[in-house]
Amino acid sequence: MENYYKGKNVEEDLERDKIPIKDLPVNFLWMQVKGGSKMGNLLAHASGILEDKTTTAIVWSAAGVGIPKAISCAEILKRQFSIGYQITKLTHKNVEEYWEPKLDGLETIIVKRKIPVIHILLSVTPITDTTELGYQTIEGKKFWHKEVTTSNTKPNQSYKSKKPFKYKKAVMNS
Rank of each mutant, 00 (worst) to 15 (best):
S151L: 07
K166D: 05
N173D: 08
Y159R: 12
L50C: 03
K102M: 10
G36D: 13
L42W: 04
E132D: 08
K166H: 05
Q86H: 01
I138D: 11
L90A: 05
I110S: 01
V59F: 10
A46D: 13
W144Y: 10
E97F: 08
G40L: 01
I49C: 13
H45S: 14
G64I: 02
H45Q: 15
V124K: 14
Q136M: 15
Y167Q: 04
P101I: 03
K160E: 03
H145S: 11
T150V: 05
S82D: 15
T150N: 14
Q136S: 08
K69V: 00
T56W: 04
G35Y: 00
G7M: 05
S72H: 01
Q80I: 01
N152E: 03
I71L: 10
E132W: 01
K142Q: 14
K69Y: 01
V124H: 04
L14P: 06
A62Q: 03
I49P: 09
D52G: 11
M1I: 06
I21T: 09
N41V: 12
Y5K: 07
T91F: 05
T130M: 14
L77Y: 03
D13H: 04
L90G: 07
K163W: 12
L43C: 11
D13Q: 13
N94H: 06
V117W: 02
S72Y: 01
F28W: 05
S82P: 05
V10P: 00
L90R: 11
I67D: 00
M39R: 01
V95S: 02
G66R: 02
F28Q: 12
T88M: 11
F28M: 03
I76K: 12
V95E: 06
R16Y: 04
D17H: 07
A62V: 05
E139G: 05
A63Y: 15
Y98L: 03
Y159G: 10
V124M: 15
I120A: 08
A170L: 06
E139D: 11
P20S: 07
V33C: 12
T88D: 06
G64N: 15
L122M: 07
V111Y: 04
K53A: 03
P25G: 09
I71Y: 02
P164H: 11
E11Q: 04
G35E: 00
S47I: 10
S174V: 06
A57C: 15
I118V: 15
P68E: 06
Q157S: 07
H145E: 14
I58M: 08
Q86Y: 03
L29I: 04
K53S: 12
H145T: 09
E12P: 01
N41S: 10
R16P: 07
F28C: 09
N3K: 01
K8I: 08
E11L: 10
E100S: 08
Y98V: 09
M1C: 10
